[in-house]
Design a protein around this nucleic acid. Structure first.
Lengths: 217, 217
DNA sequence: GGTTCCCTCCGCCTGCCGGGGGAGGAGGCA
DNA sequence: TGCCTCCTCCCCCGGCAGGCGGAGGGAACC
């Protein structure tokens, strides 16, 4: 029932440190090491560990690419991504690959052990230091109620909704069952109220303001 | 330096359990309780705790509304949301409010204590049991690469990106530093490859496919 | 009754968009 | 070398979009 772990990092010193921390934890066994992404993939395929500790920044093949490669195969290991800097690019890119954990190297050793155990159990863990940023990426949009939208009349909101479906004035007129001339008037009004130049910018505004969201008809 | 905590849950039994767990942790002090959302807001405003443990499902005012209310005020407490079921609705709704933690009641007590400490420190924690779903919500869209986008050349992708900012051909030309005629050609190509009629639908496609996302420049 | 807002509709006109077709240079590949 | 893709640029032309001003009917409010 031990958790078999492979460590991938290009710095020997850090590998040693990670190994020390991991092996000091009961039930955790380090079964391999790799100093770059290509080796990480090879060692992982050979050893089939439960958990792969993967540094993002590595030569030849970076951790993101290695994770993507491994996760595309059947029965991949759980991957805990390690990084020195918790930049938004690193964070989002890592989460996108579908890793089970994301940890900063500045995290206390017990977090690392916890992340390994959690990952091995099929769950996930994100470093507390960056978790708020993950949450913020959910909260960011709906917390911005664009004041301009409030001034739109119901009819104008209808028209804006239809605009975001890529319809022409004529199509909107058909859809709404009124004349195209009326739609033109509504569209002009919407553009004026939103302070945008054309229907294209109105659609961008609608998406960016959260008035419409991708994937919801 | 103790962490002052308020507990809000409509079940007295659960409040007692949470209090027991929290007070058993060194440096954590429970300074108030509430049995519904309205009381939670009132107690929180009176006690000004560092951390508020907030159940989602509560009478009068649910935890989500209470969190939204409190977080809209200046100097809000850190909020750790508690829930019995880790449904996607609960999860996303909670993260949207901007809480610092999201925990299932089925989590081990030490997770609760850890979440309180992490929240008090200004960081965030998401229950390992639902973290993978959070990660998946990042991976969900980019893992569906609409085949049409693959056929676009780098230049055409640039143009599409600029299109989604609501720019005219002339503005795109200026932005890209090439002639408008060239942009017209690229746009025509993009429309053809995406199978859409005009730039408006191309922008809608870009948003709906996840090629661009609201709120990310 | 007057005012205001919303919804409906009309015509005119300028300008950009998009379709069509063509063309040349740069770079990769066999 | 030939072949291909990509990027660059051009012309013509029809059509829709958007700005302009105007107008009438209905509902709500004072």
């Amino acid at each position: 029932m031990t958790i078999r772990v492979v460590i991938a990092d290009d710095h020997a010193m850090i590998r040693a440190g990670l190994r020390l921390v991991a092996e000091n934890a009961p039930g955790v066994d380090v079964v391999g090491e790799a100093a770059d992404g290509v080796a990480a993939v090879a060692v992982t395929r050979r050893e089939r560990p439960d958990v792969l500790l993967l540094d993002i920044a590595m030569p030849r093949l970076d951790g993101l690419a290695a994770a993507t490669t491994l996760l595309a195969n059947p029965a991949p290991p759980r991957i805990v991504m390690l990084t020195t800097f918790g930049s938004d690019e690193n964070l989002h890119a890592a989460l996108r690959t579908g890793v089970s954990g994301f940890l900063l190297k500045s995290s206390p050793p017990e977090h690392l052990v916890e992340a390994v155990r959690v990952a091995a159990a099929g769950d996930g863990m994100i470093d507390p230091a960056v978790t708020l940023r993950v949450i913020a990426s959910f909260a960011a949009q709906p917390l911005s109620p664009p004041p301009e939208l409030d001034t739109l009349t119901p009819r104008e909101l209808d028209v804006l909704r239809l605009l975001t479906r890529g319809l022409s004035n004529r199509e909107i007129a058909t859809e709404a069952g009124i004349s195209e001339a009326t739609i033109r008037g509504h569209v002009a009004q919407v553009l004026r109220k939103l302070g945008v130049r054309d229907r294209l910018q109105a659609v961008v505004f609608a998406y960016e303001s959260g008035f419409v969201r991708p994937g919801r008809p």
